[in-house]
C-alpha cells in the first residue's frame, strides 16, 4: 500500500479507493507555459494597482460622477452660456445697426426732411443722434462715410466756423 492510500484509509476511515483510481498518476496532467508562475504575481499586482487607481478616481469626485447631479449642472451651464451668447449678439447687432447709418444714404432716402435743414441744424441732429455727447466733433467724424477733409472743406465752403462745434 503506497503513501497516498495510507492517507485515505487512516485519515477519516473513508471508503476504499477503487483499484482503477489507485493506478492514476496525479501529477503533471496540464501543461503550464514556461515561467508562467514567475510572472503571475507582478501581472496580478499590475491589475490590482490599475483597479485601485480607478476606484480612487471614482472616489475623488463622487458627487459629480452621479448623473443626477452632473446632468443638471451641465444643463445650467449651457443655459447660462446661451443666455450670454444671445445677449452679446443682440448688443452687437444694435451697435452695428447704429454705426451702419450712412449720412448720404439717409439724406437720399429722406430728401424732404433734409432740404429745409440748415447746416447748423444738421450738425445738431448728428450730434444728438450720437452716443458720444461729450465729444461732438468726434461724434460727427465717427461717420466713416465722410472723411475729415470733406468735413473741413464743407465747413470752409459754407463759411461755417469750426469753433461753433465746440460751443454746442
Amino acid at each position: 500500500m503506497n503513501e497516498k492510500n495510507k492517507t485515505y484509509n487512516s485519515e477519516e476511515n473513508e471508503m476504499e479507493i477503487p483499484e482503477v483510481l489507485k493506478n492514476v498518476n496525479k501529477s503533471s496532467l496540464f501543461p503550464v507555459p514556461e515561467k508562467y508562475f514567475d510572472g503571475l504575481p507582478s501581472k496580478i499586482q499590475e491589475r490590482v494597482f490599475a483597479k485601485d487607481q480607478k476606484s480612487v478616481r471614482m472616489r475623488t469626485f463622487p458627487g459629480l460622477v452621479q448623473k443626477r447631479i452632473l446632468i443638471p449642472v451641465v444643463s445650467m451651464f449651457f443655459i447660462v452660456a446661451l443666455f450670454f451668447i444671445f445677449n452679446r449678439d443682440k448688443g452687437f447687432n444694435d451697435e452695428y445697426q447704429f454705426t451702419g447709418i450712412n449720412l448720404e444714404e439717409t439724406m437720399d432716402q429722406y430728401p424732404e426732411f433734409f432740404e429745409d435743414m440748415d447746416e447748423y441744424t444738421m450738425i445738431e441732429v448728428l450730434i444728438t443722434s450720437s452716443d458720444n455727447m461729450d465729444d461732438p466733433a468726434s461724434a460727427i467724424w465717427s461717420d466713416s462715410s465722410i472723411t475729415n477733409q470733406e468735413i473741413l472743406d464743407y465747413f470752409d465752403e459754407e463759411n461755417i466756423d469750426v469753433e461753433y462745434l465746440y460751443n454746442l
Binding site: V32, F37, L40, P41, K43, Q45
Partner: peptide
C-alpha cells in the same frame, strides 16, 4: 505578493482541473 507566490500554483491547478483551458484558468486565477 508573498501570498500570491504561496498559493498561485494550488489555486491555478484547482481551477485548471475545472475549466481545462490555460487562458481561461489564467483569467480566473487573476
Amino acid at each position: 505578493n508573498l501570498l500570491v507566490r504561496q498559493y498561485q500554483e494550488r489555486v491555478y491547478h484547482l481551477i485548471r482541473r475545472m475549466v481545462i483551458d490555460h487562458s481561461d484558468t489564467d483569467d480566473l486565477v487573476q
